[in-house]
Amino acid sequence: MAVTTRKRATLKEVAQAAGVSIASVSNVLNERGYVGEKARNRILDAIEHLGYRQNRAAKSLKTGEFPLIGVVLPNVSNLFYTSLVESLMDECRKYKMAICLLSTKDKAEGELECVDYLLSHDVMGIIWCAPLTDEVEIEAKIRDFPTVFIGRELEKYDCIVADDYQGGYELGKLGLSRGHSKIGVVTGPLERDIVKKRQAGLEAAIKGRAEIIWQYQSDFSNITPENIIATIMRCEATLVVMPNDFSAINLMKILTERGVRIPQDVSFVGYDNSDLCEYIQPSLTSVGQPRQSIAEEAIQCLIERTKTPDKPSRTIVKPIQVEVRDSVKYC
Rank of each mutant, 00 (worst) to 15 (best):
I212L: 15
I212H: 07
W214C: 10
Q215L: 13
Y216M: 11
Y216E: 13
Q217L: 07
Q217F: 09
Q217C: 12
N222R: 15
I223W: 05
I223Y: 04
T224G: 00
T224E: 14
E226R: 11
E226M: 08
E226K: 15
M233R: 12
R234Y: 01
R234V: 05
C235N: 15
E236P: 05
E236V: 10
E236S: 09
A237E: 00
A237D: 04
A237K: 02
A237T: 11
L239I: 06
V241R: 02
V241F: 01
V241P: 05
M242I: 06
M242H: 10
M242V: 01
N244R: 11
N244A: 08
F246A: 12
F246W: 09
S247G: 07
S247V: 09
A248Y: 01
I249E: 00
N250R: 15
L251D: 01
L251T: 05
L251H: 03
L251G: 00
K253Q: 15
I254C: 04
L255I: 07
L255T: 02
T256F: 07
E257G: 08
E257D: 14
R258N: 12
G259H: 12
G259L: 07
R261M: 13
R261T: 08
I262H: 00
P263F: 04
P263L: 09
Q264T: 12
D265S: 11
V266E: 04
S267Y: 02
S267G: 05
S267E: 03
F268M: 01
V269N: 01
V269R: 00
V269Y: 00
G270C: 07
G270R: 01
Y271V: 09
Y271D: 03
D272L: 10
D272K: 08
N273S: 13
N273Q: 14
S274I: 11
D275L: 14
D275T: 10
L276M: 15
L276G: 07
C277P: 05
Y279H: 13
I280Y: 03
P282F: 04
S283Y: 04
L284H: 01
T285N: 07
S286D: 09
